[in-house]
Write a protein that binds this DNA or RNA. Structure first.
Lengths: 198, 198
DNA sequence: CGCGACGTTGATTTGCCTCAACGATTGTGG
DNA sequence: CCACAATCGTTGAGGCAAATCAACGTCGCG
């Protein structure tokens, strides 16, 4: 098992001592995940914080009509978890599914708590990580309540150019809160040279 | 100056020692804010973390057309700040304005960093606070991309019944991402007994 | 090969916006 | 203390953005 990507990730924030790195061993497990495999399903508690070493995931909810709504993508060096369910132990309302074949590192609740206690730095590191995610999410809320679908799509491409290439359009549509049909029409409008306005 | 509300707030998460409480003095300032007074304006860096002791604030952005979009309310025992701007020192794109006459406690950046260093618990406390806010925001995103305006309004009233009474409807409309006119029509539809469907 | 996932297009419907107008309330300066 | 302005909520007519539904083409894969 190779913890290096995770250690590098932590040290992107604060350097760790050798002792601290040593504490990580045994608390973290590695898994290979196939395309379309779920690492969390609606109705079950979220048992792990998941760090994506390679591949890509989506976290989504299903509404009463059966429509799926992506609330987050997580590719390399991102964390994904239902934080509320993880801490409360209650059933999650979300699914987390691999969009690509993936390699992940996972930490269970009691292990993460152990690490928080024995590597106090981790409190700060995760505080900063969550703060950054919070700022991103705030901007997404702003976009969503203030812009048209086309503007949101262009912002998405601008902010995550790599995801724009990597993900199927129907997944992007679900993230943007629009139908795949309408995203297709937006893409057509963008691609075509300025339409006649007369 | 009375730090008790803030200390109580911190101790809602983890108890502090007397020494730790002592360290807070001198790092926190108290301010009385009038209705409609701004504590952050677009174009300026966010210099403080603000804890609301009494009153209520809104954080909003203004789009190119001049329309305001509320992205957050903060009443008693809530924090409000443009976290991104606070840490980066760059100009904020948000305003924070008092909706009611308010009493706040503020911490400046270097003071907060000082406290993080000397009261390591604070890293954990703020980690938990931000995580909770993150979960709330995630649910808001889900609502926004998956529900109609009426559903979002009912959820808002259910989740923040006190804010539903306290805030003017136009502020709620801005938070929900709809026009005040349309919120008015929603309220009428809700109030009226089940409309005839024939 | 045949099926399922994905993308596209078109016709129609609907949720919400825009604009305009009008009471009710609040607050404020003369 | 009154007059006036500003703020807030409501209502209605008309328009637009995006959803819905249905159909069809393509591709990759078992």
């Amino acid at each position: 098992m190779d913890l290096l990507p995770l250690i590098k990730h932590f040290e992107h924030y604060i350097a760790l001592t050798e002792d601290e790195k040593y504490l990580l061993h045994g608390k973290i497990s590695q898994r290979v995940i196939r395309r379309r495999q779920f690492i969390l399903q609606d109705g079950f508690p979220c048992q792990h914080y998941t760090f994506v070493v390679e591949g890509c995931f989506r976290m989504f909810a299903v509404d009463p009509k059966g429509t799926e709504h992506n609330i987050q993508f997580a590719a390399e060096n991102k964390w994904v978890a239902d934080i509320g369910s993880f801490h409360s132990g209650k059933a999650s309302g979300f699914f987390i599914e691999a969009i690509e074949p993936s390699l992940i590192l996972q930490i269970e609740k009691q292990d993460l708590y152990y690490l928080y206690t024995n590597i106090p730095k981790l409190d700060r590191i995760f505080k900063v990580i969550v703060e950054n995610n919070y700022v991103e999410l705030q901007n997404r809320v702003l976009q969503t309540i203030s812009s048209t679908a086309q503007e949101r799509y262009l912002t998405f491409l601008d902010q995550y150019p790599e995801l724009g290439l990597r993900l199927p359009n129907n997944q992007i549509a679900s993230y943007l809160g629009i139908t795949p049909e309408f995203l297709s029409k937006i893409r057509k409008a963008i691609a075509s040279p300025a339409p006649p306005h007369a």
